[in-house]
Structures are given as C-alpha cells and as structure tokens.
Design a protein around this nucleic acid. Sequence first.
DNA 1: ATGGTAGAGCATCTA
Length: 264
Amino acid sequence: MPADRVRYATWNVNSLKARRERVLEWMTHAEPDVLCLQETKLADASFPALDFAAAGYEAVHHGEGRWNGVCLISRLPITDVVAGFADGGPPDDEARLLTARCGSSLIVTVYVPNGRAVDHEHYEYKLRWLDRLRDHLDALTTATDDVIVCGDFNVAPEDRDVWNIDEVHGGTHVSAPERARLGRLEAWGLEDTFRRCHPDEDRLYSWWDYRAGNFHKHKGMRIDLMMATRSVADRTRFALIDRQARKGSSPSDHAPVLIDVDAR
DNA sequence: ATGGTAGAGCATCTA
C-alpha cells in the first residue's frame, strides 16, 4: 500500500471471538489502514486489543457482550473517541455506534438496527436510530470536513442492490422510509463511495444469508456501505467488496468493503 | 416438505 493513499475497510464479522483468526489473516493481505468492525459480540474487557497492537494497529472498542459491538482499528493515531450518540439524547441501550478521529479524518462506524419486519417495534427503533445518526453528525462535524460513515446500514440503497426485491424477509432493508433516512444522510453531505466507483454494475452484494445456500446462489444484498463527504469521495480511487473473504470455512455472513483514498 | 444456518449460550434470541 503506497503511503500516498489511505485504505479504509468495514466488515460485519458476526462475532470477533469466532472470527478473530480470520480477521487477523485477512488484515495481513488486505492491509487496511483503518478497519471498522461490526457485530463483535464482545464486552470491552474481552476485546483482543493485543492482537491488533502486535500487528501495528491502535484499536478502540464499544461493546456490550452478547450482541452488537463495534470497533475501530487503525494504523493512524486514534483520538477524540465517542462511544454512542453525541446528539444530546438518551444513551442507546445497544452498542452500535463508535466515532473517532483517525489522522485527519473523522470515522463513524455504525451497526444500524436490523428492523426485523416493517410492522415490528424494532423497525421504528431503526428509523429513529437513523434520524439520530444525522443529529450525531451535526453535533460533531460538518460536511466540509473529511468524514467517513461506514458499516452495516441494514439498508440496500436501490432495488438493484438486492437479489430479489420480493424475497426480502419482512420487507425491511428496502422500504421507502429506510431509504428516505439514507437520503437524508446523503442530503447532509454523504455519498455512497462504492456506488460512485461502480456506477453501472449490478449484483454487487456484501451480505448473503447463511441459510438455504444463498451465498452460492448469489442471493445477497449490498447493505454494508462506505459513505463519505465530498472531499473524501472526490479522492476515492478504488472500491471493492472482497467476496473471497465470504468463502471457505466459518465465514461471516458479510464480506468486507474497502476503499482507497488519495492523500491530500 | 413453508424449512434451511450461524453465533450467542444453554432456552431461546438475533440475524
């Protein structure tokens, strides 16, 4: 990785305890400068910070134990760490949001609530959560800053980001209200950098259900996103979903997404 | 055949 570019990656690992060796191995060949993980399913005390330190990375983790959990792993110095929302509202019961400055960029990693079904109470939580995310950004930064908001959004931006719009369980991930929240983040000043690098390609997914052989049938969705402000998006030269990392024994149900950004 | 798998942890919840 030449020093004139910074490589950012995001990966929902579905338990860092189960995926620790696989993540460390992936890092040795993908060589991200900044890696955000979701669904670590770890308490902070169980986070394997030493493994990442030995590989040359600083790390911060925001977890609760059994579910959720997000972390930020970086070769660049990590400062200004904020766990959860900074919007002035009540604390989130669930560990889904972590913000920090890595070098000169503000990195926000998210594990957006799944929603379960559009008529479920959890779906309302998802919509409120996405509203709060925008307020969180307003509280900490502006769209003229170098900001990356990445992670598992549990929303597919467009119909072409889903293998079959009619088969999406419970109608979540593709509903108009969720996409409207994504649109509000875009209106705030964030851009889907992966889509910008691949404007015309379809069937590019980042998640495949473990069940029913969906990965091998390529029945997936693109729900893991690298959103960034214009100053970052304009310098994004490369974007990739690493499907190789979804193969082999004991994979996560998500593939990592990475982008290379030219240095200023 | 209206399910299927995986991870938490030990009955069932979450995705």
